[in-house]
Structure formats: C-alpha cells, structure tokens
C-alpha cells in the first residue's frame, strides 16, 4: 500500500487565479498562446468585480467562490528508487473569475469622434 504524501507548506503557497470565460482567447501571433507573453490584463475593480482587457476588448466579469476549493498540486517524483511519489501543494484556489458576458470594444479617442453609424 503506497502512501501519497502531500507537502503543505502554508508559507510557500502561491496565489493562483482560475479564469472561466464564455469564449476563447485567440491571437494571430505566430507563436500563438504558447509563448509567455503579455496577453492582456485583469483588473480588480473597487466593487469587487473584475474586468479583463484583451486587445480592444474589455470583458466584465465577477469573482465567484468555488463550492469546492481546488488545490494545485505538483507531482514530486520519488527521490530514490522505491521511494514514494509525493505531491507538493502549490496553491489552493477558493474562487474564480468568471467572464460570461459579451465583451465591449475599447475605441481610441480619434475613433470615438468619427461619424456615428446609426
């Protein structure tokens, strides 16, 4: 019977963010989303809400507490042969940012003053 060890070090916990979106994040850059690059930003607003800015899109969202918190685990291979696999708890996620409404478009100032369509 093997035993899985979870290393829980409260001091070493990192802040993780769970994002749930109605839609996908896309890019036309050659590297795609894989490259570690700045994609956009998420801001916490004063009223406890959040918003996500992707390109010219601003997606308003909200913070929802998860019913069951999630733990982010990192698998630690056994240090020596025959040793036990252990997991290190990297973070515990208790809430998520949910973006489920249609994004707004952020326009530049010069574009704002253009003749209205309607």
């Amino acid at each position: 019977m093997s035993q899985i060890e979870f290393a829980y070090d409260k001091a070493k916990l990192r802040e993780f963010c769970l994002i749930e979106t109605q839609g996908s994040l896309e890019t036309d850059r050659p590297g795609g989303l894989r490259g570690q690059q700045r994609f956009g930003q998420i801001e916490r607003l004063a009223d406890g809400k959040v918003q996500m800015l992707v390109g010219v899109h601003r997606v308003p969202g909200s913070v929802v507490q998860l019913k069951k918190p999630l733990a982010v685990l990192i698998k630690q291979p056994p240090a020596e042969e025959g040793g036990d696999t252990s997991y290190r708890i990297e973070a515990i996620i208790r809430d998520k940012f949910m973006f489920k409404v249609r994004p707004d478009v952020i326009l530049q100032q010069e574009l704002v003053n253009m003749p209205s369509v309607s």
């Binding site: 839609g23 896309e26 890019t27 992707v54 390109g55 997606v59 994004p103 478009v105 530049q108």
Partner: peptide, 14 residues
C-alpha cells in the same frame, strides 16, 4: 475594429 487599433493581435472570442 481591431485593425483600426493597429497593434492588438489578441482578442477575446466570445
């Protein structure tokens, strides 16, 4: 619209 922004290559596909 994004084109008119010029530099944004990312977007949110809703």
């Amino acid at each position: 619209a994004g084109d008119s922004m010029g530099r944004s290559h990312e977007w949110f596909h809703f």
